[in-house]
Design a protein around this nucleic acid. Structure first.
Length: 518
RNA sequence: GGCGCUUUCGUCUAGCGGCUAGGACACAUGCCUCUCACGCAUGGAACACGGGUUCGAUUCCCGUAGGCGCUACCA
């Protein structure tokens, strides 16, 4: 009988969710929804030393913002709980016991210090079939001695006993048949008596089994330990319900070598976390996609295409469309450099698809921060006039580049002249636009403008156009000089849009100031 | 070092034995124009290398080289 598809995303609460983790979760979501299955949210907090307060809540909040919905798990409920591994101690203990009883695992007393020393003195030391009989464990001690040591309170770990010389196959949905010989695997620690918790490997297999997980979709960094996991399923006798595996390629640095890190984002100017993160230990603040003005649907779309594509030319997709099209077989096998510039483009595309009204709240926040009060209608007017522009931005190396408006916040530096009179006149524009006849032209234009009752765009256009034509002036001569007066430089939307927005009085005032200054 | 994964334009990628090797981002040019732009059009730009298999390899196999990952009582 076909089992219901059940997948999981299982982060460790050791800090903010990395953008690579977001993509992994997204793929799990797409896969689950496509198959009418469940997505489980599990917290893997088996390392008590690395727990970071607030991380779990942060991760939940992130997915809420992104629109990735879980069917069960921590904070979502469900009947396969508890979903926090630290609350499943007793469950793991019975399974560790099982492995111990059937001889697939053994107890080891070697301290971390002893192992470090061993590694230092022996090159390529590995705790495995070739060395375990020289170590301090239940294979080299009598049962009585082991009992006595435990009774005396000595700390120990439980190690998985791996039989060497066997080719272990992992059937990966993305990579096909991956074979690793068991001889190169070490006797992994499955359980530590010190905190009475299992390690990742044991907890992972037990939970996936108990939670009836059918597909494990995770990062490529897990591929080397996948054979160990297969061996564990086998040791427990769960091979018939073992999940299928799919190991995703990693996200790499945009420039240079290595995997994507937080530093890259700081250096190049893009977030690597979904939400702003305040590190409780250091007090450092890391920027997030949400606070940087990204739209959640743009982030999902952008991320989804880093490592997967539907096979054709389609790039802009809603979450639902992606659910329809997603296919693990169409995932790439090699790591993807994080093309954050394309992320700008995605955000622009989605922003443009939103009506101007949706831009207003954030734009209003920005204006208020600048001490400007403005009605929503007037803000919407400015937005619609400016959203097709480009913005200059500084690169880390000091060079200035241009890009399209991709964020609401991009508008402000380009449109401040709507709200503030120019305080200086751009030298290059003066040279280009302020000609011999400009003073005379502007003085005459002021007279014309004074006589206009209907100062709307249409009202002005009618009168000013007629005036230009009647006198045989050149359009460019008038407009460029006028622009210099009102804007202070050579940019912005149509002149009538600007003058109509700031009004007759302010228009004349700015022209007067310009005539004085130039 | 060992083991594994991987390799198409600068970047993300399409391709699943025969194609002028396609798209997108980025870049350049032209058109449009009252400026800066948007938009539109055009352009440059790739199958890592060497062997096989085959009538024919970007595509399949094997090496080499590069990239990435793992190699913890972390996940």
């Amino acid at each position: 009988m076909e089992r219901k598809v059940r997948v999981r995303f299982a982060p460790s609460p050791t800090g903010p969710l990395h953008i690579g983790g977001v993509r992994t979760a997204l793929y799990n979501y797409l896969f689950a929804k496509q198959h009418g299955g469940d997505l489980i949210f599990r917290i893997e907090d088996t390392d008590s030393n690395r727990f970071v307060p607030g991380a779990e809540e942060y991760i939940i909040e992130s997915f809420k913002w992104l629109g990735i919905k879980f069917d069960e798990g921590v904070s979502f409920g469900g009947d396969h709980g508890p979903y926090r591994q630290s609350e499943r101690r007793e469950i793991y203990k019975t399974y560790v016991r099982q492995l111990l009883d059937n001889g697939r695992a053994y107890i080891a007393f070697d301290t971390p210090e002893e192992l470090d020393a061993k590694r230092a003195e022996t090159e390529n030391f590995q705790y495995d079939a070739t060395t375990r009989l020289q170590m301090r464990n239940s294979l080299t001690m009598t049962a009585e001695e082991v009992e006595a040591r435990i009774a005396a309170g000595e700390q120990y770990v439980v190690r998985f006993r791996i039989e060497p010389g066997e080719d272990v196959h992992v059937d990966d949905l993305i990579r096909g048949d991956v074979v690793i010989n068991s001889s190169i695997l070490d006797d992994k620690v499955l359980y530590k008596s010190a905190d009475e918790l299992p390690t990742y490997h044991l907890a992972n297999i037990v939970d996936d089994h108990l939670m009836e997980v059918t597909h494990v979709i995770r990062g490529e960094e897990w591929l080397p330990s996948a054979p160990l996991h297969v061996l564990l399923y086998r040791a427990f006798g769960w091979e018939d319900t073992m999940p299928r595996f799919a190991h995703l390629p990693l996200l790499l640095k945009p420039v240079g070598n290595g995997k994507l890190s937080k530093r890259d984002g700081d250096k190049l100017g893009f977030p690597v976390f979904p939400l702003e993160w305040h590190d409780p230990a250091s007090g450092n603040v890391s920027r997030g996609y949400r606070e940087s003005g990204y739209l959640p649907e743009a982030v999902c779309n952008f991320l989804a295409l880093l490592g997967w594509n539907p096979g054709g030319d389609k790039e802009l997709m809603t979450l639902d469309e992606m659910v329809q099209l997603f296919d693990l077989a169409h995932c790439s096998k090699n790591g993807a450099k994080f093309d954050y510039v394309k992320g700008f483009w995605f955000n622009r595309e989605y922003l443009l698809r939103h009506p101007v009204e949706d831009w207003v709240p954030e734009f209003d926040r920005i204006l208020r921060a600048e001490g400007i009060e403005c009605s929503a209608e007037r803000e919407a007017t400015v937005i619609s006039l400016m959203k097709d522009k480009v913005i200059e931005y500084a690169q880390p190396d000091g060079s200035v580049k241009k890009r399209n408006i991709s964020f609401v916040a991009d508008l402000w530096p380009l449109c401040r002249f709507f709200f503030e009179a120019p305080t200086a006149y751009d030298e290059k524009t003066v040279k280009k636009a302020w000609r011999e006849n400009s003073r005379e032209l502007m003085t005459a234009l002021m007279d014309v403008l004074r006589g206009i009752d209907d100062f709307s765009v249409e009202g002005q256009e009618q009168v000013v156009h007629a005036w230009i034509e009647a006198n045989g002036y050149k359009m460019g001569d008038v407009m460029n000089a006028w622009r210099l007066c009102l804007v202070g430089e050579g940019k912005g939307p149509g002149m009538y849009d600007i003058s109509a927005f700031i009004g007759k009085e302010e228009t004349l005032r700015r022209m007067e100031s310009a005539l004085k200054a130039l």
